[in-house]
């Protein structure tokens, strides 16, 4: 590390101004759980490090008529302890609860999980299934971008990730999540899946499925969505969905040594998220 200057940020305005001034010579730090390792390994070598972990405007979870907005420095522990992410939003609680370890969850933030851009970021697939929007701020102004597009047009050197927001789910919509790691704690995700499903009388009337660690970055699984739309969930359609995901993985991960393993592993994980959705819809376990 060769940091020349540090700054304890107090407001969004001054952080954004500093980022504009220093451009690629400055980096922001919040929880530090990823960036301190990158600094130590000289993956990044900023001159100025700006701490945003005490900027009030970036903290906390807000709810209005239409949206739930999560401030970028909200920690995984704060999300796990929030009463908002229960019932049909339990999928995000589950994802955040499975991040790293208690120590990592106490410091690691939702904004950092997005901005760091890891393919295995646990909170991203559920946020993507919710069709979340990321707000980025710079001296040039505010930019809102869907999380799905974020990985094609990600955060710029002078931008600050301010929050991530999504529409409040209706009573007939449910978010689910499942993760496969090598062990329960402190394991990087080998595979994560999340689904957001709307049911109308047993029939899937709207669906988004997002995966983690199945590509260079978390992404929507459109083949699975297309297959399941208009169907009801049962043994046959779940098997069909697994087949649909396998087909698109075969293309995408061709030649990768992990493909044969992941082809088998996804069946359990996809089944888990769909069964959870079904349990929510029916109020009971169907099999």
């Amino acid at each position: 590390m060769d940091i020349k200057k540090v700054y304890m940020g107090r407001s969004v305005e001054e952080v954004v101004r500093l980022l504009g001034e220093y451009e690629n010579k400055a980096k922001v730090i919040a929880g530090g759980t990823d960036i301190v390792i990158a600094l130590r390994n000289k993956v990044i070598e900023p001159e100025l490090l700006i701490d945003i972990s005490k900027v009030e405007e970036l903290k906390g979870i807000k709810e209005d008529e239409e949206y739930i907005t999560i401030g970028s420095i909200t920690t995984f522990t704060e999300i796990v302890e929030s009463e908002i992410f229960q019932s049909n939003l339990y999928g995000l609680h589950k994802a955040c609860k499975m991040v790293g370890s208690p120590q990592i969850r106490n410091k690691g933030t939702i904004g950092g999980n997005i901005a760091n851009g890891s393919p295995a970021a646990d909170s991203v697939p559920p946020l993507m299934a919710l069709d979340s929007i990321v707000t980025l701020l710079s001296i040039e102004g505010t930019r809102e971008i869907s999380l799905e597009d974020y990985y094609y047009d990600s955060i710029k050197e002078n931008e600050l990730l301010v929050n991530v927001k999504f529409k409040k789910p209706k009573d007939n919509q449910v978010l689910t999540f499942a993760k496969l790691g090598l062990r329960k704690a402190l394991a990087i995700s080998r595979l994560t899946l999340s689904s957001f499903i709307e049911f109308d009388d047993n029939i899937i009337t709207s669906i988004r499925v997002a995966s983690g660690a199945l590509a260079k970055f978390p992404m929507r699984e459109k083949e699975v969505e297309d297959y399941l739309l208009g169907k009801s969930l049962n043994e046959e359609t779940i098997e069909g969905a697994i087949e649909a995901l396998r087909n698109s993985m075969d293309e995408r991960l061709k030649g990768r040594p992990t493909l044969p393993y992941k082809r088998i592993a996804i069946s359990t994980i996809l089944r888990e998220i769909l069964e959870e959705a079904l349990v929510f819809e029916k109020g009971v376990k169907a099999w």
Binding site: M8, I29, G32, V36, T77, I104, N106, K107
Partner: peptide, 16 residues
């Protein structure tokens, strides 16, 4: 009040 990994917190972030 919360456990953290002190290897992942920068010293200046502990101000206050």
């Amino acid at each position: 009040g919360e456990i953290v990994n002190s290897c992942l917190v920068m010293g200046f972030q502990a101000n206050g």
